[in-house]
Amino acid sequence: MDRLLSMTVFAKAVELGSFSAAADVFRMSPQLVGKHVLTLEQHLGIRLLNRTTRRQHLTEIGASYYEKVKVILAEVAAAEGLAAESHARPSGRLRVNAPLTFGIHALMPRLTEYMATYPDVQVEVSLTNRYVDAIEEGADVVFRVGELADSSRIARRLAPYRLILCASPAYLASHPPIISPMDLASHECLGFAYTELRSHWSFDGPDGPVTVPVTGRLMIDSGEALLMAARASMGVMLQPAELLEADIAAGRLVRVLPKYRAPDRPLHLLYAPDRQMTPKLRSFIEFSVAVFGSGKD
């Protein structure tokens, strides 16, 4: 006999207090219920139930066995529910956290595709450059730019974040020429707060990698605000390509040191290892890897 079925029948007989009541639930005869219980007893070599013509009650070992069986059946039900859920249509509220510039210029233009594909998912997006443990604060997934310091999260590597060095034509016309990265030390460099970009910029050039200490009177924690400052000829900026390409194409900004490439910054998608892999979470992870990959995990 199927041992799991026998356990299920045994547990139901205990809970309902009789073989006949359990038989009604499973649409089988009371004799077959008794056979399932007997099969378990023979397999275990113990008596689980003391039975008379009027009543039944658990033996001491039978009571302990019943408690274990309840746990096993609950785990089986949970596993089957998880398998069924994995095939279910993604639905419910999905909370996403991302840096401002990436969120506005990369995520938001593509998010409509995800929401059109999964109309039963409601997406709540939080955009901030302040470093917080967004998952602890309730986010399901987090986009993170830069090196990861927290190894307690599951990280999916995405395509790196490309940075561009630029300034306005007016700024470049009124300041000494920038021929090499070291010339930046004597310029107003618009610093990005809370990251390494506030104090030093690195490049790969014809002669290899070089890191330059940078200073400036203006430091902001928003790429969009830095863009306004660069347009106003307040200094040189090093920010993501998504933020700058339109201004460069329109001539409002000019690339500086085009032969020197700023190292790409890592981009990851994070989620908690204990977070249940619901259909909505799985679908968004797969979407993000497809759209913003690949970073070669």
Rank of each mutant, 00 (worst) to 15 (best):
D2H: 12
M28R: 14
T128D: 13
P109N: 06
H268W: 15
D133T: 07
L58N: 03
P90Q: 08
R27K: 11
F102M: 09
M237E: 13
G235T: 09
T53A: 12
A232N: 09
I46Q: 13
Y131E: 14
T39N: 12
H105I: 11
L227V: 01
A84Y: 02
Y260P: 00
G138K: 07
V9N: 00
H36A: 09
V214P: 00
L238V: 13
Y114G: 06
D274G: 05
A116H: 06
I61W: 08
A159I: 11
V37P: 04
V9Q: 02
L16H: 02
L148W: 05
V123G: 10
H87T: 07
A22R: 01
A250G: 09
E41I: 05
S283D: 05
V96R: 07
P213A: 12
L4A: 13
V142I: 01
A290W: 01
V256W: 12
S64P: 00
I248A: 03
P266N: 09
H200Y: 07
S186R: 14
H105N: 09
P176L: 08
V212L: 02
L281V: 10
R261T: 13
V125L: 09
V71W: 09
D24P: 00
A77S: 08
A23I: 14
M115N: 04
V121S: 05
V145M: 13
